[in-house]
Amino acid sequence: MSDPLLELDGLTKRFGELTAVDDVTRSIHEDDLTALIGPNGAGKTTIYNLMTGVLSPTSGSVRFMGEDVTDLEPHERVHRGLGRSYQVTNVFEGLSVRRNIRAPIIARSKQRWNLLGSTTEEIESETDRVLDLVGLGDIEDTECSALSYGDKRRVEIGVSLATDPNLVLLDEPTAGMNPTETERMVDLVQNLDAETEQSFFMTEHDIEIIFSIASRILVLDRGAVIADGTPEEIRQNERVQSAYLGGEA
């Protein structure tokens, strides 16, 4: 097996008395499309925030592509190839689709401190490439606030991809979508996973989607990983059933 992309080692986060993430040690590999599931309040968002650097852990470490990134700022982790998309659409509402996609590309180019010049041809062609990748080329001049929910979510994914990540953390990519939009989003993620160099790590409340596209599933309950395996293994795991179904299992 290849070297792990992301390694969590003894990762723990406490808020006062509450232990939101409890001693999690796991590795995420490039070949997998890994999914993180768990009941509400299990600590999924906190794990995301620890991975991306929004929160610092109480103890433990995060390594990305062999490098300890525990003490790095979020934007520094992005530059190293750790991208993130959000559960609630979190795009630059007042800017056009093109500018949404172009901003991350500027941010990782030498042009980011170009105070008085214009964007280069290189940036523009890279913007075109990402716009095509997520199928947004025909609405590139529309301001995001005027887009439909489904289109906004595609911009959301596009913005994350435009940071040129090695690993993209997707947070509930189909939340709030209608069945058609959900289907298109699942297709998009599957295609991107297969055709591009990016690997994906996702959370998703729709368990059916997880079981159909993930190759590995981590189950989180009360801050701890209680199961880890292929979809078949997870389906048959008793602890998972009791965590989700309570005493009835």
């Binding site: 979020p74 992005v78 979190n90 007042g94 800017l95 500018r99 980011r112 940071t163």
Partner: peptide, 15 residues
């Protein structure tokens, strides 16, 4: 402009 629109997200695109 990206910071004006959404500072949290701007961080997450590497700004």
């Amino acid at each position: 402009l990206s910071i004006r629109e959404n500072p949290e997200r701007a961080t997450m695109i590497g700004v």
